[in-house]
Every structure is written in C-alpha cells, then in structure tokens.
Simulated scan of single mutants.
Amino acid sequence: MIRTILVPVRGDGKGDNVLAHAAVLAHRYDAHVTVAHCRPRPEDLMPYGVHIPEFLRNQIVRQSYQVADQEEEGMREEVLVLAEKLRLDLSGDNIGRTATVAFLAEAGRQVDVIKRRGRLADLIAVAKPDRDRNLGHNTLKAALFHSGRPVLMCPHAETPPATLGAHVSLAWNGSAEAARALSQCISVLRTADAVSILSNGSDSGPGTSAEDLVDFLRLHGIAATIVKFDSRGKTGRELLKASAAAGADMMVMGAYGDSHERETVFGGNTQTVVDTATTPVIFNH
C-alpha cells in the first residue's frame, strides 16, 4: 500500500498540479506526502572552469542565497494554501491516520535530492516532461533510474482527477520490466476496484502470458480482466488508447527496456507514453 509519497518541487510552476494528483492518492491510502523543495547551492551556479574574481564570487553567493530564500518562502506559502484546498493535514499529528503533508527544504541539485529522499518513498510523483520547453526530463530520469521506486508521471490537468487507483490498468508483455512493475505495484492492484491487463498477445514464452498473469493475480486475491489491443500501430499509443477505453484512471508499466538515451533519440514504447499520455502513469524501472 502507498503510505509515503515524495513530490520534488523547484519553482517551475508544475508543483501544484503534481501535489493535486498526489493528494488524490493520499486520501485513498491515508498516505503522507512530502513536498521537497530543492534549494540550489551557490557552488552549483558557478560557471565551471572559469576564473571568477573573489568580489564577484561573493556577490553571486549573496544573491543566490537571497533568491533561494525568497523562492523557498514562496513555495512554503503555496503549500500551506494548497494543503487547505486539497484537504491535506499539515499539523504533523495524524501521519498514518489520514492524508497528510509536510514541507521539506533541502540544499542541493534536484536530481540528488530525489535520489536520497526517493529511496524510502513508496511513490515519487513528478510532472510530465515538457518536450517543447525541455523541462522535467532530468527529474523523471533521476526518479526512475536512481531511486529504485515507482514513479507517478502527472500530466497537466486544469482540475485534479476525481479518483486515482480505483481502476488500474497494467501493461503486460511478459518482460522483466513488466514483472518488476507488477511486483512494485501489486499493492496498488490489490486495493483497486478493478484491474485491466493490457496485452497485444505478445509475451516471453510459456508461463508469461496474460492468462498466466490472471491466474497469478487470482492467487493474490486480485480479480483482473484481459484487455486485448491491436499491435499494428505504435505500441505506446495503443496502450494508452486501450487503457482509456477500459476506463482505467491510472496505468502501470515497466519503463525503458532499452536505454533512456536510445528511446529518446530513436523512439520507443516508454518514450511514446511519456510524450503523449494524458492520464497518470506509474512507471517502474
């Protein structure tokens, strides 16, 4: 079951949408949300390999602290407002008994904060990367490749979804990546009202078919339905279409069977889902 959710933020305007998605899950599971603001360190802002006079270096340090303090105070106030709007308890007295939230400020690069804080989170919630503005790719990549935890990608939404986790779809092809997604998210499947297995009929041989998965889940007390989809189109797009047609509010899938760089350059099922998803997806790598 999801009891802890990490939401890394850095003042790019996407944190409120991600927190709204995390809040829906927090209410479902009585989970605790940690909003982690990643403060840039002055040394991370210094140009590499360029000599800087001491007076200029001191000025950059002072100004960077001032900017970081202002940004942190703004983020803290925003979390206070959002917590009330999203009905998240900020008192710190009811963690584990209801949907709660806490604000955490930590100095360092966001990718490093995600690595450290994410490893003891049940779920890391991040914004869907913005390819046009080249925002969010490193955040998603750090969460997926360096935390060892499931990552919820939240597409932009004018209003947060009414439910998440009520009807979950699982992308299945019998691969090691799909099996890892199943293992890491089986508690999400167990608490769902409905589970749909998305399959185009391909698998890794005997013992890995969608039918075998139905039997496996039944032993875990999970009733699942197989949803077949046509594999003649782009598999990533067809997965999303099949998930939406089944009525799922969230999809679970293994991510980047090929390397992230190869899929980014040449395309791949995961990258297609990252680029085109309009509903939340939990990735596992």
Rank of each mutant, 00 (worst) to 15 (best):
V33H: 11
P53Y: 15
V113P: 13
H21D: 00
V113A: 07
A121T: 08
S204F: 01
A157V: 02
I60P: 08
M253V: 04
Y29L: 13
A20D: 08
R97E: 15
C154M: 02
A210Y: 03
G92C: 11
K228N: 11
V7F: 09
T208R: 11
H220I: 08
T163C: 04
D249E: 06
F55S: 14
D30V: 03
N269T: 15
H37Q: 06
E211K: 13
P280M: 00
I197E: 06
V24F: 00
D89T: 14
S259W: 12
H156N: 10
T264K: 08
R28S: 03
H51S: 15
R39V: 12
V35C: 02
G15Y: 01
A194Y: 06
R180Y: 07
R57W: 05
F216N: 14
G15M: 00
G207K: 07
E72C: 15
D69A: 12
A246N: 09
L6R: 10
R133V: 05
D212P: 13
P280R: 04
D93K: 15
L240W: 13
M46Y: 05
A242K: 06
G268D: 04
N58E: 15
L123N: 01
V273H: 04
V252S: 01
V81Y: 11
A248V: 07
G247I: 08
Q110Y: 00
V195P: 12
L80T: 14
R237T: 06
S169M: 05
L135Q: 10
S183C: 07
A181M: 04
E211G: 13
L164W: 05
I52C: 14
Q271M: 05
G92Y: 09
R119D: 10
S147G: 04
F266S: 11
K115W: 14
N269V: 15
E78Y: 06
A125N: 06
G136R: 09
V214C: 11
Y65F: 15
S64T: 11
W172E: 10
K228P: 15
A102Y: 09
F266W: 07
V265W: 07
P206H: 05
L120Y: 10
P150S: 04
I95S: 06
H167K: 12
A255C: 01
S183T: 13
A246G: 04
A26Q: 12
A125D: 10
